[in-house]
């Protein structure tokens, strides 16, 4: 460094000191942040409605708790309409909500069609629609959720990799045939299998999200193919049954079980630790809840016309394996989220 350079640095440092010395004097008067008042006003007293396919399971309870935690401190009211697995009841709830005019509705679609028209109507009436995890054919202001195709692809890639050098026989345990999440995941599975002609699918059946059915199917498949090297399951809640069948056959560790879920500790991490699952792709529910709440804050404070902007926030998946299953951050506890 030349002598000029050093002088310059010293001068700059001196000016910096002077500013620092003056700053406290200015701060004593306080400076109004010009946007926060409008933000608070836009949110206060507004209602956010939430229509899951049903309450009482880790995903929907987690989203509700997370969104409430984020929005209630700003004076927003978060209400839930629980259709308890009835598509009809859900459509009715949505229709009623449109006339009640909440600021935003979070919709968890049971299929790709049923709510599509209603959601479009709601946005025309000035209600923001945020779809979560299971999208419909209608793209609303925001979609926050897992990319099922990616889940199918990554789960299958892991299974194919685990099968390398083994029998190359795999089984697929699908969810319910009517559910878009199941069909999309299957597409992802097919995408990978198309690249691996050596892998043979010995069974691809729907277990209806039911652990007992998944167990029955897996047991029969394992008896027929004791050399099976991997299973792609579509949901951790159902694949408890898949894993139980593998364990009963004494094949834990020999059959690679990959599945996906919301990453709740008992449903995902504990089961990976016990060896029941080898991979759970978690779509981390608390993060999804935060993102939904973030979208709502942004949309409501922006005043943008509902339906005029449309975007997606696909969830960054957390692969839960033996390596991270013991860590504090890989999974979440519903009880903590509810606090």
């Amino acid at each position: 460094m030349t002598i000029y350079g050093r002088t310059f640095t010293t001068t700059a440092f001196g000016i910096g000191l002077m500013i620092a010395a003056c700053a406290p004097a200015l701060a004593q008067k306080g400076l109004d942040e010009p946007f926060q008042a409008a933000f608070k006003e836009a949110l206060a007293g507004k209602t956010v409605a939430y229509i899951p396919v049903a309450m009482n399971f880790d995903l929907t309870e987690g989203w509700f708790a997370g969104v409430k935690k984020e929005l209630e401190p700003y004076g927003m009211k978060v209400v839930v309409r629980d259709p308890n697995w009835s598509t009809n009841a859900g459509a009715q709830a949505l229709t009623t909500l449109i006339s009640e005019k909440p600021a935003a509705i979070i919709v968890h679609n049971p299929d790709v069609q049923t709510y599509a028209k209603l959601m479009q109507r709601a946005e025309n009436e000035g209600i923001y629609i945020i779809q979560v995890n299971m999208g419909s054919v209608y793209r609303s202001s925001a979609f926050v959720g897992a990319n099922w195709i990616e889940i199918g692809e990554r789960d299958t890639e892991a299974v194919v990799k685990a099968c390398a050098g083994k029998s190359n026989k795999i089984a697929i345990v699908q969810g319910a045939l009517s559910a878009a999440a199941s069909a999309y995941t299957l597409k992802g599975v097919e995408n990978v299998l198309a690249k691996h002609p050596e892998v043979k699918v010995v069974s691809s059946q729907a277990a209806d999200w039911d652990a007992a059915k998944a167990k029955a199917i897996t047991q029969t498949v394992l008896k027929q193919n004791p050399d099976l090297c991997g299973i792609v399951g579509f949901w951790d809640g159902m694949d408890i049954g898949t894993a139980a069948a593998v364990k009963e056959a004494g094949l834990t560790g020999k059959v690679f079980v990959a599945t996906s879920g919301g990453g709740e500790r008992r449903g995902a991490c504990e089961l990976v630790k016990s060896g029941a699952f080898d991979l759970v792709l978690s779509y981390d529910v608390p993060t999804q809840a935060e993102q939904m709440a973030g979208m709502i804050k942004w949309l409501v404070s922006s005043g943008v016309k509902p339906g005029s902007v449309k975007g997606s926030m696909y969830t960054t998946l957390i692969p839960v394996t033996k390596e991270n299953a013991g860590s504090e951050t890989a999974c979440w506890n519903l009880s903590d989220l509810k606090k």
Binding site: A54, N56, F57, N84, W85, D208, D210, A211, A212, K215, G237, I240, G241, A243, A244, A276
Partner: peptide, 12 residues
């Protein structure tokens, strides 16, 4: 047998 009780089975 399945290491859990899916009580939703009532709706099945």
């Amino acid at each position: 047998s399945v290491n859990s009780m899916p009580t939703r089975i009532f709706n099945s």
